[in-house]
């Protein structure tokens, strides 16, 4: 037998790609009229928001079975699953608007590092690897969920009906993620000297990547009424962060921002050294057995 997976397939059954979602397209049956805008920009924008969710979901899933307590394994995996669901919808939409025949699986598994458009904060190692710990993970969850909740909140008014609908669902999910992070920040900052020190160190680790979240990209500028200008999210973000930090008696980290490389950052496909390793783990089975079905 040429392909070990052939044995798992009954001839009469529907065959699924072994390592992709392989199921019904995420947007099956959804009204998918495409607004009269720059299609390339709209596809790129869907990719940005989808890649943020996909890559961050992959990072959160690394905690499964390794969190400080069983409930937290379940919580982080649930948050990852919500984001993966958002990623499926957004990548499917990106492929459809692009109209070059790429579906969500192709986009997730067969793109190289430079083609990913996620912000760099989603990809860095904040634990359980050596780049962080649970405190760092909670710091990133606070920052990213506060930012994405503000973003999706505005996106509910998008002129693209699919983006608006994805955002309206996502807002409800993100509200739970942000509360979860904020409540952990309070527990860790108000716990022992060690937990407090780790919380502060975690915030210092993620804070250098925050400016990138609020930098307007040309793709966003090209889609007025459809895309959200991230520069407008700062006020809501600051207000939520100040509330959490006030309650936890924490100061904003005073650390230098990680600058873009020659003006380019995650949204341009320029990533940190962590990204290649992340993609290698996420993609290698799908790529080493291309087209395997079950």
């Amino acid at each position: 037998m040429d392909n070990a997976y052939d044995g798992l397939t009954d001839a009469g059954e529907e065959r699924h790609w072994a390592f992709g979602t392989g199921f019904t397209a995420a947007l099956a049956g959804v009204d998918r009229a495409i607004p009269d805008v720059d299609r390339a920009a709209l596809a790129a924008y869907c990719l940005m928001l989808g890649d943020d969710a996909l890559v961050y979901s992959q990072r959160l899933a690394e905690w499964c079975s390794r969190a400080p307590e069983l409930e937290e394994d379940v919580a982080l995996a649930n948050i990852a699953l919500d984001l993966l669901g958002q990623a499926r919808l957004l990548l499917t939409r990106a492929g459809e608007v692009e109209a070059a025949g790429r579906d969500e699986d192709t986009l997730a598994y067969l793109r190289d590092e430079r083609e990913f458009r996620n912000v760099r904060l989603t990809e860095i190692d904040c634990g359980p690897g050596p780049g962080g710990d649970f405190g760092t993970t909670i710091a990133r969850l606070l920052v990213l969920s506060t930012w994405r909740l503000a973003l999706l909140g505005q996106l509910t008014a998008s002129a693209d009906p699919v983006l608006a609908a994805v955002a309206a669902k996502g807002v409800k999910e993100l509200a739970y993620h942000r509360d979860h992070a904020a409540q952990w920040v309070l527990r860790l900052a108000g716990g022992t000297d060690v937990s407090r020190a780790r919380m502060i160190a975690g915030l210092e680790r993620v804070w250098p990547f925050t400016d990138e979240l609020f930098t307007t990209h040309p793709v966003e500028a090209a889609l007025p009424g459809v895309a959200v200008d991230p520069a407008t999210l700062r006020a809501e973000f600051d207000q939520v962060i100040d509330t959490v930090f006030g309650a936890a008696d924490l100061d904003r980290p005073e650390v230098r921002q990680v600058a873009p490389l020659a003006g380019q950052a995650g949204r341009d496909g320029v990533h940190t050294e962590a990204m290649g390793f992340l993609l290698a783990e996420m993609q290698h089975i799908a790529r080493s057995t291309p087209g395997a079905v079950w």
């Binding site: 909740l149 503000a150 909140g153 807002v171 409800k172 993100l174 509200a175 942000r178 509360d179 904020a182 409540q183 309070l186 809501e236 207000q239 939520v240 509330t243 959490v244 309650a247």
Partner: peptide, 13 residues
């Protein structure tokens, strides 16, 4: 129905 505007933060359950 959800109120319009920013989603309120819950610092405790």
């Amino acid at each position: 129905p959800r109120a319009v505007g920013p989603v309120p933060l819950n610092l405790e359950p």
